[in-house]
Nucleic acid binder design. Structure first.
Length: 437
RNA sequence: GCGAAUGUGGUGAAGUGGUUAACAUUCCUGGCUGUGAACCAGGCACUCGUGGGUUCGAUUCCCAUCAUUCGCCCCA
């Protein structure tokens, strides 16, 4: 093989690409139903944009960004996430001047992080996400959560475990950080290298440490909830209450802090556990941000976002045999001899013009292999043309699912195809319905 | 960035320091068939991931590299 794909990248083709499209279209349809509009922002941005928003101390910025200088000596990065670019776009388009809040955006597209690939994790990966910006109302937090919950359910993730926490507002967090620093400074000499860095860069992230001996120390650390001010506490209570009213089961997890610095108040994650009990971890996550918009030059307003990785969703759905149906074509026209190929091509063209998806064989071979070709294309109907059919202006129309075959006059063909395809759709709907129950 | 395993045809997978790389399956071609079958005959690795080294000789040994998978870190 002359060239292989780069580490952490992959070609998405055929069935997998169909599945990606299906997943993305379900997510975007859902977002549209919730009143979100699509934002397509560039894949490259100034490096500074991500450093500013994700935080200098975040792992994403410190070791995972694809950054480079362009020919004009500008520092550019491939985006590691889409929130920053989306907010930037809102500001550039002066959407905040109209004050029709919240501004609701959704996006789908590639992101890049330089990290070690694993199952469902890539260096170039696609994310779907939403941002609801401009209003501080806790209802927006809940709306985004309900959207995420609903969308993931519709995709076939049934046993979702929804974890939520609050990081409090800037004031609460500042007090809490001070408390953490004074607590951990007593033990820091015995803690891991990363924690020694974190205590200065971002003490909150020590709570995320997985080193066993550190975990013991962390257990005794002050709790954020004891440092929340009245406002943050009430806000969080309102979020929880509204979630309950909308039948979202939650689990408050006070160790939940997110890797990006811009979050404040509500943060959340959707975890998935399969029917067989396998825990896939977080398949979607998000949170509220209060300073991000102002930080990027916009007004002092807050927002809330949610994102999930398409590759991860796909890999879990595939793992559980729960992929959306792949595309099929309506009609496959087959002939045994090249003599009839031109007639077949004429027929295929007219079927396509009538709006059917149709294909034909050009390389004539045995019936056995032609039916296999039709099957590989996931075809619903086959049309067989031979000498008798040409002479009598008819075709043999075969339902590849039931294996029933009819002789149909050319004049009646499209009606008959419509009729049979309708049966297919009824069947599909029924099937789909069963799956959802 | 750290640790471990793997890399032989479309797929699964044997194998050896020495002429034609076993087997299974898929696929393709030809024969016979107006219908996804059966049967017969034949074909499909001339870089055994890539590059280098050891050797008279390497797919088999050594090194590097690339890729995949798993764990850690982190995250979607």
């Amino acid at each position: 093989m002359e060239y292989s794909v780069l580490k952490g990248t992959h070609d998405v083709i055929k069935d997998e690409a169909d599945a990606y499209s299906a997943i993305e279209s379900l997510l975007t349809t859902c977002a549209t139903n919730y009143g979100f509009r699509e934002f397509r922002t560039p894949i490259i941005e100034k490096t500074e944009l991500f450093v500013r928003t994700s935080g200098e101390s975040s792992d994403i910025v410190r070791k995972e960004m694809y950054d480079f200088k362009d020919k004009g000596d500008r520092n550019i990065s491939l985006r590691p996430e889409v929130t920053a670019g989306t907010i930037r776009a809102m500001i550039n388009a002066k959407l905040f001047a109209i004050q029709d809040f919240p501004i609701k955006a959704y996006y789908v597209g590639p992101n890049f992080r330089y990290e070690r690939p694993q199952q469902g994790r890539f260096r170039q990966f696609n994310q779907f996400g939403v941002e609801s910006v401009g209003s501080d109302s806790y209802i927006n937090d809940v709306e985004v959560i309900v959207l995420g919950f609903t969308a993931l359910k519709m995709l076939g993730f049934k046993n979702l475990k929804f974890k939520i926490n609050t990081l409090g507002d800037l004031e609460s967090r500042k007090k809490y950080k001070e408390a953490l620093v004074s607590y951990f400074s007593k033990y820091i000499d015995n803690m891991c290298f990363d924690c020694k860095e974190r205590i200065n860069l971002n003490p909150l992230r020590i709570l995320d440490c997985k080193v066993e001996s550190d975990i013991e120390i962390i257990k005794g650390a002050p709790k954020l909830k004891d440092y929340l001010n009245q406002k943050s506490t009430e806000r969080f209570e309102n979020v929880l209450k509204l979630l309950k009213e909308n039948e979202i089961d939650y689990e408050v997890d006070d160790t939940l802090v997110r890797g990006l610095d811009y979050y404040s108040e509500t943060v959340f994650e959707f975890h998935y556990i399969s029917d067989l009990g396998k825990n896939y971890g977080a398949i979607g996550a998000g949170g509220h941000y209060s300073e991000l918009v102002e930080q990027l030059g916009g007004p002092k307003v807050s927002g809330v976002g949610f994102a999930c990785g398409i590759e991860r969703l796909y890999s879990i759905l595939a793992d559980n045999n729960n992929l959306p149906e792949i595309n099929s074509i309506d009609v496959y026209v087959m002939t045994m001899k090249p003599d009839f190929n031109e007639a077949a091509f004429g027929l295929v063209t007219s079927l396509r013009n009538c709006g059917f998806s149709a294909d034909m064989n050009v390389e004539n071979s045995s019936f056995s292999s032609m039916f296999k070709k039709a099957e590989r294309r996931n075809t619903k109907l086959a049309i067989i043309i031979g000498q008798n059919e040409i002479e009598n202006s008819v075709v043999q129309l075969k339902n590849l699912h039931t294996k029933e075959q009819f002789e149909v006059k050319l004049d009646d063909l499209t009606d008959k195809i419509d009729e049979i395809l309708e049966e297919f759709e009824d069947h599909d709907h029924h099937h789909h319905h069963e799956q959802q129950e």
